[in-house]
Nucleic acid binder design. Sequence first.
DNA 1: ACCTGAACACCGTTCAAGT
DNA 2: ACCTGAACACCGTTCAAGT
Lengths: 230, 230
Amino acid sequence: MEPAGATGQDGAGRLTRQTVLAAALELVDEHGLEALSMRRLGQVLGRDPMSIYRYAANRNELLAGVAELMLDELEVFPDDTNWQEQLRRIAHELRRVCLRHPNAVPLLVTGPLSTPLGLRPAGTLRPLEQILGILIGAGFAPADALHIYRAFYGFLYGHVLNELQELIADPEENEALLRLGLQRLPLRDFPHLRRLAPELLDYDGEQELDEGITILLAGLGEQLNAGRSS
Amino acid sequence: MEPAGATGQDGAGRLTRQTVLAAALELVDEHGLEALSMRRLGQVLGRDPMSIYRYAANRNELLAGVAELMLDELEVFPDDTNWQEQLRRIAHELRRVCLRHPNAVPLLVTGPLSTPLGLRPAGTLRPLEQILGILIGAGFAPADALHIYRAFYGFLYGHVLNELQELIADPEENEALLRLGLQRLPLRDFPHLRRLAPELLDYDGEQELDEGITILLAGLGEQLNAGRSS
DNA sequence: ACCTGAACACCGTTCAAGT
DNA sequence: ACCTGAACACCGTTCAAGT
């Protein structure tokens, strides 16, 4: 009989990097980023905290590993449909992964800041490589593929951040909470914002993302067709 | 004669919230986010660390204050040029603020995650209110203004994150470092990425942002003109 | 009423001591 | 050679003691 729920472990059995990272992600999901400490993770795993250093060089490397694990949930389908549909699909896929692990999104988004590309964990680079592959396979010049990737991923990350900012934990109290929040704002300084309370309440992130992607892809196509000179 | 450089302080003179936040931002700029501790900030200010609690309820509130201070650097010009040019200008403005304080960008971008809108510091909400004002002033229905704001700000944040990810500290060693990084990647798994090394090196963030904004604004205009039915 | 700083309950990480 | 855990140098925050 196992002692605890989910990834709960006691001293028995060998740890894996996967097990450690999975437990770390679970900790973040349930108790937030700041709950992920070496000591607490050790406790969850039923091990001496120091033993974690066998699977991650230090806390930062552990955090990077959690981000990597998250991205493993992202499946890329190399279908034969056109590239635009593939990117759209990836966008929705990544959005869902982020909504599943909102507490871990900062790791994904600001974790690798100013870490040189080549030094990042392979898992983090895989989506980039795959998208480049899709675009180059669709006939784009590599430089154009990179251009499209940047616009696409930038928009995608931005959207996810936007959506998470508007998401509030308790869906029951959403309306009350948000309203309450907005009431606090001085009407004099924030007239527009206060007036938009109802619209802020029924935000459809999936649709908003989809529309944005449509606009962006259409615009990128045009831009590339037009500017053959530069 | 003042004792130390920049915001340096010793025990003399009364502190202000502004002084405290400015010192905090400077600490982050120079030594990174993790260097911003109550104790170290107290030391920089030449005061007992506990005295900071007079100006910020706790560390999180301090971090939010730093983000707010950063946004104060963003000027919005209520010109009579058209709304698209105003948004474009804001975009470039925010980009520059972020490049000036790269270490503080996570505060801006993931700081207020899941804090209800109304409970955020006023400084954080001001850009939102101003942009809504610009758009509504330009004749958009409030709901459409919100729609445009979301797409615009999402793209903007995403771009800044993208750009910061590609930015490396030491501009002298950029090429060597990046190349070195990329060499580490298995050619088998990352053929496209490795091939794009030269293109990755001369990334022009300002132009990339400008093109993206153009595409987005054009697309948003079209979408709003077309879909009068929904 | 305000300010100070000792004390508490945590951290990440090093490294000597055990096996 | 591997694992353990004591020890070090930090944290944020509380709260009693001073003024």
